[in-house]
């Protein structure tokens, strides 16, 4: 499974917004298909489900949904592919995955409601140290 994303080359620029859009969906599919591998190598079955991980990937993509410049989308896709490669090749450790993608998300860890009071700084502190 790791080999599916291991040898991804940098593709030429997308000619149009439509092509960039299609590439985003392709990237999303590749990410979804590597979720079982990721769950296995980082041993995170007891923390998240594949469905939740899929929603997390989708929400990361949706964060940039306002971007309409194909070149910027290509750049973000490149960064996303790089990140996915790093994750699938086990270049990260378990707490990277958990801290960056799982913890501090209200849909996964709803017990953070008690930490809602306090200043904006404290809220950010409790949420995550990844930006």
């Amino acid at each position: 499974m790791a080999s599916t994303v291991k040898y991804v080359r940098v593709s030429p620029n997308s000619a149009s917004l439509e092509e960039a859009r299609r590439r985003v969906f392709d990237f999303f599919k590749t990410a979804c298909r590597s979720i079982p591998t990721i769950m296995e190598i980082y041993n995170i079955d007891d923390v998240v489900t594949p469905t939740q991980l899929r929603s997390i990937v989708a929400s990361e993509i949706r964060k940039n949904s306002h971007i309409s410049n194909p070149k910027v989308i290509d750049m973000l896709l490149f960064k996303g592919t790089e990140e996915l490669n790093n994750i699938v090749e086990h270049s990260k450790q378990r707490h990277h995955i958990l801290g960056q993608y799982v913890l501090g998300r209200p849909e996964i860890t709803p017990d953070s409601a008690t930490k809602e009071q306090g200043s904006e700084y404290l809220k950010n502190f409790f949420r995550s140290n990844y930006f």
Binding site: F25, K29, C32, T51, A58
Partner: peptide
């Protein structure tokens, strides 16, 4: 939206 659509298709694949 279209991304949700792809997400559902991936869920069905699984």
């Amino acid at each position: 939206d279209s991304l949700d659509n792809v997400e559902i298709v991936m869920a069905l694949e699984e």
